[in-house]
Design a protein around this nucleic acid. Sequence first.
DNA 1: ATGCGCCAATTGGTCAGGCCAGTTGACCAG
DNA 2: CTGGTCAACTGGCCTGACCAATTGGCGCAT
Lengths: 252, 252
Amino acid sequence: MFSPVESRRLYRQVADQIRLMIASGELAVGQRLPAERDLAEQLSVSRPTVREALIVLEVEGLVNIRMGSGIYVVRQHAANAPASEREPVEGPFELLQARAIIECAIAEEAAGCAEPEGIALLDDALTRMSGGVNDAGAVIAADRAFHTGIAAIVGNATLIRVTGEMFDMRMSPYFEKLASHFEGPMTWRSAVDEHRAIRDAIAAGDAAGAKAAMRVHLTMSQKRFSESFGEEFSGEEERGRSRRPAKGTIKT
Amino acid sequence: MFSPVESRRLYRQVADQIRLMIASGELAVGQRLPAERDLAEQLSVSRPTVREALIVLEVEGLVNIRMGSGIYVVRQHAANAPASEREPVEGPFELLQARAIIECAIAEEAAGCAEPEGIALLDDALTRMSGGVNDAGAVIAADRAFHTGIAAIVGNATLIRVTGEMFDMRMSPYFEKLASHFEGPMTWRSAVDEHRAIRDAIAAGDAAGAKAAMRVHLTMSQKRFSESFGEEFSGEEERGRSRRPAKGTIKT
DNA sequence: ATGCGCCAATTGGTCAGGCCAGTTGACCAG
DNA sequence: CTGGTCAACTGGCCTGACCAATTGGCGCAT
């Protein structure tokens, strides 16, 4: 295999270099970068090239360009890379563990401020989920609605967003492949039952119960997944990552 | 009313226009765009401006620029908004509430699996934070390291990422302006003390204590913020900008 | 001494024109 | 028909310049 002579365009190299300096902290958050003209000189490139690189960083949300003032570092980390090439993402087990910890806390909180309208939201998601066990798309959408719905009960947009984002990570290419094997009408029926238990606990204002029910749900979900995972990849270590899958045991 | 004067930077206007043509299907997927020189002429702007606009679209993954060949439409829809334009609708208070719920749970979990190396991570962040109370950038970096460090103790990459992302949201332009007013050596010293309480509880394996300490920390942080928030907006409308005041009232 | 307004240095925004290098397709020799 | 060559086209990058917004300091008036 011959490698396709990578001759990266200059402005990308410059962007990478600056991005690295920001990530490493060499350019602190809030700090002003040297002027475009100075950057061009220091990097031995022309100003247009520097500008193009800076525009890339601006689009990525790393820097803030203010006319007449300067260029400022906004944050260190690209919260979302081009999404297409997003981090080698975390493994499915890590994700489920994280969801267990976070969503248990949210369910607990939601039980403390449940109102009829919020419960109605969950009920709607439940009926949609149990009603369409043969339509994978519909079930997943309803599943998502249920989980974000719990966050909605708390009435906090950030929680809703975070919950949704974590749910959506199951759509990562790697995750997706396996999902088709372990997701089926049977597992979904179990999931609906577990959802209903969560809903009932929240409706009853039972914080501890809601937390426990959510933990059961995500633990079971993890178990269902790991079973088909074992079949699929018996023996192989999860993506060759050094991270021990054992860490995935929930101890909350 | 005077016309909006359209002061947006040119390359952004050009990018928007081309993006629109792609979205509307006027430029089909796979089709080649006119040459940069032609685009410049048709849009009555210079070629560098067209180039900058095209680089924006390339970073967004809408087009593929091939040297010597041309520019091709890759897909119609921007899968994810460019982060900079990402709805920041959530208010600072909502963010702090969400962090309280989530990070309390993480701290609780961390207390259950604390190991010397993890504690060392927190200690390092603490010393860096207390050591540089006069360097805003250093303190914020250390602050971030402390919070993500707790997630690191649990050993879950997803938790680390989520914690970091929530922390970084304080860098939103709206949040930032106020931060400079309520953040100072004094408030930071308080924050360090609260951090230390969290660290001690985790080191002692006291789950309930860690949870409580984290709650205290984020509640106090919210309080400090809300005080200066009141001062700042007591009457003056910041620079005549039509900023919406805090949308999120906290209901914890 | 203090507060206000003006001005100039600095910095990003845009333009014009030019040269180089890679791509592509037509054309021609074998 | 096959292969190679070449010229037109296209993006990549540079130089140098001017415009516009910002900002900090200087000087004037109070």
